[in-house]
């Protein structure tokens, strides 16, 4: 294996890293906000809120992300005059915004189910205790349900973020020059698929390891009550005090 070539390739691929990170970061953020709204909608008892949320989740989890990307980027392009009349054409003209929209909507559907499950997992006794102390709905959400659900959702959400980082590679198909786009160009030019795959793969793997580690850290920090108690100070020190 040609190490000089691989070093060169790795550096060339790094040029796409900012775009990959930007797509992943923004879609996780926007998708997360939308997911929270969707989860609250499907947990509400109002059918007019529950059914749209369920339909959204059903459609976006049941179809491939690439189809969603094409539907938004190429499909909506067919309605250009209408979109221009509405003044939103500048948004749907750009591959970047289309990719971001598709990624956000897609992750929102998956994350909504994670958040819904996490909220449902909050033990009823905790909510009851909160109410018994006279907490209002907002205080209850902020102090009791939110923190418990957040901790519950973290492991599954970490998987979702990893799959979002991987999903940004689909943006390469609609001409966005992120890591996979550059890798594909290089493979087509040099036909050294294995070396380039190793370089590009290592970049994604490093991002994903960093994400997983960061969330494990967050989980550790959020669950002090589940860790073993710190050891008692030795008896001699206690005698001093």
């Amino acid at each position: 294996m040609d190490l000089a070539f691989m070093a060169e390739t790795w550096l060339a691929l790094l040029a796409g890293l900012p775009l990959t990170l930007r797509l992943a970061g923004w879609s996780v953020l926007c998708g997360g906000v939308l997911a929270l709204v969707l989860a609250l909608m499907s947990l509400s008892r109002h059918p007019a809120l529950v059914w749209p949320a369920r339909a959204f989740v059903f459609v976006f989890r049941g179809t491939p992300l690439l189809v969603q990307v094409f539907l938004i980027y190429y499909g909506l392009g067919q309605f250009r005059p209408t979109l221009q009349a509405w003044g939103v054409w500048w948004f749907f003209r750009e591959a970047y915004w289309c990719a971001l929209t598709a990624l956000s909507l897609n992750t929102a559907a998956y994350a909504a189910e994670i958040i819904r499950g996490a909220i449902l997992s909050v033990p009823y006794g905790q909510i009851e205790a909160g109410r018994a102390c006279g907490m209002g709905r907002l205080t209850l959400a902020r102090r009791i349900v939110g923190p418990i659900a957040l901790r519950q959702a973290l492991p599954a959400y970490s998987n979702e973020i990893v799959s979002m980082v991987k999903a940004t590679s689909l943006a390469s198909i609609i001409t966005l020059a992120e890591v996979t786009f550059i890798a594909q160009k290089l493979i087509a030019q040099t036909f050294r698929a294995v070396e380039i795959f190793i370089c590009a793969g290592s970049i994604y793997l490093l991002i994903n390891i960093a994400v997983t580690r960061a969330i494990l850290g967050l989980e550790y920090w959020l669950s002090p009550h589940l860790r073993a108690a710190p050891r008692e100070p030795p008896a001699s020190e206690a005698a001093h005090a």
Binding site: V162, K166, T180, Q184, A193
Partner: peptide, 22 residues
Amino acid sequence: TTLLRGVPDLLVIYLFYFGGSA
């Protein structure tokens, strides 16, 4: 399993497509 679950599937497909024909 770590590699294949941490790398975009599109890259794996390119690997098989271009690598296989090479």
